[in-house]
Structures are given as structure tokens and as C-alpha cells.
């Protein structure tokens, strides 16, 4: 899973497979971080929290 695991070798299989995995995880991580941080900022800015939809 990580380059420091002893099974890891820098071959095409590992790069494609793990690349795909980390790509997905990073997108999900960044996406959720963005949503949470933005929600915190929006909340701090005030507003009644209604009427957005």
C-alpha cells in the first residue's frame, strides 16, 4: 500500500493500481475538507442557515 512496504516495487502494476487508489482517496479527502471548511466559514459568516436550496 505504501512504498515502504517490502512488497512494493516501482513497476507499472503498482503505479497504476496504487495511483488509482490514492487518486480516489485524495479527491474524496479534498472534497470533504472543502465542504467542511466552507460550511464552517459560512456558519461563522452568520445567516440563519435557511433558504439556500
Amino acid at each position: 500500500m505504501f512504498p515502504f512496504n517490502f512488497e512494493w516495487i516501482w513497476d507499472m502494476s503498482h503505479m497504476v493500481f496504487m495511483g488509482g487508489l490514492w487518486y480516489a482517496l485524495i479527491i474524496l479527502g479534498i472534497g470533504m475538507t472543502y465542504c467542511i471548511v466552507k460550511a464552517a466559514i459560512d456558519t461563522a459568516k452568520g445567516g440563519d442557515g435557511h433558504g439556500h436550496h
Binding site: 480516489a24 472534497g31 465542504c35 467542511i36 466552507k38 456558519t43 445567516g47 440563519d48 442557515g49
Partner: peptide
């Protein structure tokens, strides 16, 4: 839950970004 401003905003933001999550979901 929606009455809590933070959760309301969070839900709103998550709806806004949902296409990205859905695309990742489709890929996976």
C-alpha cells in the same frame, strides 16, 4: 438537524460538490 447552521451549510456544500463524488464513485 437542518436547524443547526453548520449542518445546514455542510449539507448544502455537499450537494454542490456531489457531481465530483458521484464521478469518483462511478470510476471506483
Amino acid at each position: 438537524i437542518d436547524k443547526v447552521p453548520f449542518f445546514h451549510h455542510l449539507s448544502h456544500n455537499m450537494h454542490g460538490t456531489m457531481a465530483v463524488f458521484a464521478a469518483t464513485g462511478a470510476f471506483l
